Amino acid sequence: MKWMIPTQHGAWSMLILPFVLGGMVGGWTWTHVPFAIAWLFVYMGTFFLFQYIKQRKKSRDLLRTVMIYLIIAIVAIVPVFLVEWRLIWFAAAMIPFGLVNAYFAKVKDERNVWNDVSAVTSFCIGGMASYYLGARLLDATIVWIFALPFLYFMGSIFFVKTMIREKKSIVYRNLSWGYHILLFIVFIVLGYPLLALAYAPSLIRAVWFYGKTIPIMKIGIVEIANSIFVLTCLTTYLLI
Rank of each mutant, 00 (worst) to 15 (best):
L40I: 10
K168W: 07
D61Q: 00
V143T: 07
V42L: 12
S169M: 14
D109T: 11
F158W: 12
F97V: 00
T65D: 11
F229T: 08
M1K: 13
G45R: 00
V120A: 11
L82G: 11
T236I: 11
I219A: 03
P193I: 02
R56M: 08
Y210L: 03
D109F: 05
K108T: 01
L99Y: 00
A206S: 13
K161E: 11
I145G: 04
F153E: 06
K108A: 05
I72S: 05
R64N: 14
L99M: 01
L195V: 14
Y179W: 07
S156L: 03
R173K: 13
M163K: 10
P79S: 09
I181M: 10
W208T: 08
V83Q: 14
R60I: 11
L82F: 15
G178R: 05
A73N: 04
Y237H: 01
A147P: 15
I74V: 10
W177D: 11
Q55N: 01
W39E: 04
M24E: 15
L239C: 02
I219D: 00
F158T: 05
V100E: 10
W12V: 03
Y43E: 01
V230R: 09
P193N: 04
K58Y: 05
S202H: 03
L87Y: 01
L190G: 15
P18E: 13
R60Q: 13
L17E: 02
A135E: 05
A196D: 10
T121L: 00
V100N: 06
S227K: 01
A38H: 12
G155K: 14
L203R: 13
M128R: 01
N226D: 06
A93N: 04
S227T: 03
T213Q: 12
S202Q: 09
P149F: 05
M94R: 11
K161V: 14
T65W: 13
W30K: 14
W114E: 09
V80M: 06
P79M: 00
